[in-house]
Amino acid sequence: MMNEMNVQIDELIAKKLCGENTPEDDAVLQEWLDAAPDNQQIYNAHAKQWMEVEALIKGVEFDTAAAWEKVAAKTVAAKTVAAKPAPVRRTISLKSVSWAAAAILVVGVVLYRVAIPGYSEEVFAENGNLEVVLPDDTHVTLHKGAKLAYNKTFTGKERKVSLEGEAFFKVHRDEQHPFVIDAQAARVQVLGTAFDLKCSKDAASVAVVEGKVKFSAGDDKNTFVVLTKGQQAQLNNDKMVSSAIEDENFLYWKTGIISYHERELQAVFAQLSEIFEKDIVLNGTMPADQSKQLITVSFNGQGLESILSEICLVARCRWEKGPGDQYNISPQ
């Protein structure tokens, strides 16, 4: 009996504290308050506790302004500036930063040297990207799997190095001593510049970020091209083709940044498939105007699934993981 009464009083107090009280409720509550001198104190204590819990709950802060910027970029802003959509920028997360730091540590430990004829030093980026600073203060970032050989001190007219695989070079300017890279199928000569160079036994490509690069076929001194900022060239079985750099993500392996400016959805998926080495399959039911829609977006250090989710949100499709590690994309 007493318990039941308490339950009813609790409900009445709650109602009053929420402004839900009716005149009948007030009458019953008043009766209770008058019944014992302590009851007013009990009521007051309840009211205080209630407010404290409410304050605790409302005390968790969220940055509405920052969230609005993110949401607006995908909604209001995306709609009004359709011709020039604002790219969605993401900062690299703390987690991936520490992951990267760990990777660098690991790579640092496994760095080993093997003498190559003509060079005193060799570095091999076995487990991940590797930064190397050469004696002339040239900075080289080796892509995972790449090998670079050089001499501890550069002597003679040329600064000579040898590369296998892919690397980004930021060459210290020294016009008296050209920097020459023996890049398997190709030969690259520069004075001071920054560029990405990728080579194998029978193919090579270079993309220039700043300065000038002379790119020539390995043993054929007459087949060469001089490239400047924003240009690229491919060498394939001694055939050379140069063009403007179209793929803005050629440095993804180094920067972790992927960005698309008005790129067709299907082309975006094709490249993501290449970068992440996973099959991404567009469902046949997707209409052409959807698969060819232009996407503008950028990512920094995100994983494939998070990237797919974001693109799907913009492109109104959805992804699911299919058999054999494959990703299937279908209309929403």
């Binding site: 109602k15 929420c18 839900e20 204590a45 506790q49």
Partner: peptide, 16 residues
């Protein structure tokens, strides 16, 4: 709803 709110009140009392 009244039941739940009364219950919440009671539980918060014990919690505090």
């Amino acid at each position: 709803i009244e039941n739940h709110m009364g219950k919440a009140l009671r539980i918060f009392r014990d919690y505090t």
